[in-house]
Amino acid sequence: TETYETTDETEARKIAEELKRRGLTFRIERHGTTIRIESD
């Protein structure tokens, strides 16, 4: 499991693209301005 936290929408998108490219599944949670991406 890898966890990323960012407040930057663009960075979050880049992380999501990278995880997809590596064939990982992940979920995105939003907590206020923080975007949390957690891979399975």
Rank of each mutant, 00 (worst) to 15 (best):
1 T>D: 06
1 T>I: 13
1 T>Q: 10
2 E>K: 09
2 E>Y: 15
2 E>R: 11
2 E>S: 08
2 E>F: 15
2 E>Q: 11
3 T>M: 11
3 T>E: 05
3 T>Q: 07
3 T>A: 09
3 T>N: 06
3 T>D: 03
4 Y>N: 01
4 Y>S: 01
4 Y>E: 01
4 Y>W: 13
4 Y>D: 00
5 E>A: 04
5 E>P: 01
5 E>H: 06
5 E>N: 04
5 E>C: 15
5 E>G: 01
5 E>D: 04
5 E>I: 13
6 T>V: 10
6 T>S: 03
6 T>M: 04
6 T>G: 02
7 T>E: 12
7 T>H: 07
7 T>C: 14
7 T>V: 06
7 T>I: 05
7 T>M: 07
7 T>W: 05
7 T>Y: 06
7 T>S: 10
8 D>G: 02
8 D>S: 12
8 D>M: 03
8 D>I: 05
8 D>P: 01
8 D>V: 04
8 D>L: 05
8 D>F: 04
9 E>N: 04
9 E>M: 08
9 E>W: 14
9 E>V: 08
9 E>S: 05
9 E>F: 07
10 T>F: 09
10 T>D: 14
10 T>A: 13
10 T>P: 03
10 T>W: 10
10 T>G: 12
11 E>N: 04
11 E>D: 05
11 E>A: 07
11 E>I: 11
11 E>V: 11
11 E>G: 02
11 E>R: 05
12 A>H: 01
12 A>V: 05
12 A>Y: 04
12 A>L: 04
12 A>Q: 01
12 A>W: 03
12 A>I: 04
13 R>A: 12
13 R>Q: 12
13 R>M: 13
13 R>D: 07
13 R>W: 11
13 R>P: 01
13 R>F: 10
13 R>H: 10
13 R>T: 09
14 K>Y: 08
14 K>S: 08
14 K>A: 11
14 K>G: 06
15 I>Q: 02
15 I>V: 05
15 I>G: 00
16 A>V: 15
16 A>T: 13
16 A>K: 05
16 A>E: 06
16 A>L: 13
16 A>Q: 11
16 A>Y: 07
16 A>G: 06
17 E>T: 08
17 E>I: 08
17 E>S: 09
17 E>A: 12
17 E>V: 07
17 E>C: 15
17 E>R: 09
18 E>A: 09
18 E>T: 07
18 E>R: 07
18 E>W: 14
18 E>I: 08
18 E>H: 08
18 E>K: 06
19 L>G: 00
19 L>Q: 01
19 L>I: 03
19 L>F: 08
19 L>P: 00
19 L>D: 00
19 L>H: 01
20 K>E: 09
20 K>Q: 10
20 K>W: 11
20 K>A: 11
20 K>F: 09
21 R>D: 04
21 R>N: 08
21 R>F: 05
21 R>G: 06
21 R>E: 07
21 R>A: 10
22 R>K: 07
22 R>H: 05
22 R>T: 02
22 R>L: 08
23 G>N: 05
23 G>V: 01
23 G>F: 02
23 G>W: 01
23 G>C: 15
23 G>H: 04
23 G>R: 03
23 G>A: 02
24 L>A: 05
24 L>F: 07
24 L>R: 10
24 L>S: 03
24 L>Q: 05
24 L>H: 09
24 L>K: 09
25 T>N: 14
25 T>S: 13
25 T>A: 10
25 T>Y: 12
25 T>R: 14
25 T>F: 10
26 F>Q: 07
26 F>Y: 11
26 F>K: 08
26 F>H: 08
26 F>T: 10
27 R>W: 14
27 R>S: 09
27 R>C: 15
27 R>Q: 09
27 R>G: 04
27 R>L: 10
27 R>P: 09
27 R>D: 10
28 I>N: 02
28 I>D: 03
28 I>A: 02
28 I>F: 05
28 I>V: 11
28 I>E: 06
28 I>M: 06
28 I>S: 03
28 I>H: 02
28 I>L: 04
28 I>C: 15
28 I>G: 02
29 E>K: 09
29 E>Y: 14
29 E>H: 10
29 E>G: 05
29 E>F: 13
29 E>L: 13
30 R>A: 05
30 R>K: 10
31 H>L: 11
31 H>N: 12
31 H>I: 14
31 H>F: 13
32 G>M: 02
32 G>N: 04
32 G>Y: 02
32 G>F: 02
32 G>K: 03
33 T>S: 12
33 T>M: 11
33 T>V: 10
33 T>L: 12
34 T>G: 04
34 T>E: 03
34 T>S: 06
34 T>F: 07
34 T>R: 06
34 T>H: 06
34 T>C: 14
35 I>A: 00
35 I>V: 03
35 I>M: 02
36 R>V: 08
36 R>W: 07
36 R>K: 08
36 R>N: 02
36 R>I: 10
36 R>Y: 09
36 R>D: 00
37 I>G: 00
37 I>N: 00
37 I>T: 00
37 I>P: 00
38 E>Y: 15
38 E>L: 15
38 E>W: 14
38 E>M: 15
38 E>P: 00
38 E>D: 04
38 E>V: 15
39 S>T: 15
39 S>R: 06
39 S>G: 04
39 S>K: 05
39 S>L: 15
39 S>W: 15
39 S>D: 02
39 S>P: 08
39 S>N: 03
40 D>V: 14
40 D>I: 14
40 D>H: 13
40 D>T: 14
40 D>R: 12
